[in-house]
Amino acid sequence: MTDRTEAPAAVEVPPADEQGRVEQAASATASPRLGGRLSEVRNLGLVGVLVILAIVGVATTDGAFLTRSNLLNILVSASIIGVVTVGMTFVIIGGGIDLSVGALVALSSVWATTLATQDYGPVVMVLCALLVGMGAGLVNGVLIAYGRLVAFIVTLAMLVSARGLAQSLSDRRTQLVTVDAINDIATTEVLGIPLLVYLFAAVIAVGWVVLNRTTFGRRTFAVGGNPEAARLAGIDVRRHTALLYVVSGLCCGIAAVMIMARTTTGSSTHGDLYELDAIAAVIIGGTLLTGGRGTLIGSILGVLVFTTITNLFVLNNLPTEVQNIAKGLIIVAAVLLQRRSRASSP
């Protein structure tokens, strides 16, 4: 907290998000150098990166970047990993980590597309994906919260075993979705915008409200910031921790339905390295890995940065290796930029 330079600001209007309020409260009690306007400049670094990427896109792609269909394509591409990132943001703000998200997407997609499940129709398939995600998340949460195991280890174990289970259920085959209602999710457009984008927006909206406008959200910040203080304040820390992993699992289930629609398949190879992409997006979005601080909007901007990079590279016909190198550099650059804008803000 010592690197903050802002003077205590007027507090008539509380900041919109919980992170801002946490900082404001901290500034009122602990440090005279911390203020509430911080959250407004928090994401400037990422917005800056997005603007730079857009300029690069316009300059290098001969008009292919700045078209309606390409921008929608970027949003649709971001939607699946974006939903996973929403869940990840909750877990990390709550002081945990979930390495199993990619494997849970794979497992949910496979479980929901077995021939037996497809026989029951689209509703059961969706329910199945959500239940599998939440169930696996619950196992994570219970082991971490009540079994007092380290989140890193538990979710790592879940990563391995969920993917293993996905492989054994599917016999390592790609399972084609023959139920049209599921495949239609990816092709349906409402008012010219794909349904997947609405789904993505809805998950963000619900996530934002829960994180910033409910007791659940406030408890998440409290549990992540200082679990002992949260416990003394009367929060059931263990139950809350367990629930955070269920939220993450639920997001994986939703993402699994989206990926089933988008690829018309369920497969144990789905969601490969999602855990890394999601964690990277959350971190460059300004959320602390140690918990207690972070914003959902930052995470979403992080996802958009990565998706835009991928898009730009394919538009420019550059190979995957270069793309990975650039991604790494941009993670570092974004974090540096963010720290500068934080330090130099008035």
Binding site: T114, L115, A116, T117, C128, G135, Q175
Partner: peptide, 13 residues
């Protein structure tokens, strides 16, 4: 939910 999920694991054609 467990019963429902258990019924959904088969890939037998």
């Amino acid at each position: 939910a467990g019963a429902l999920l258990a019924a959904c694991t088969s890939n037998d054609t």
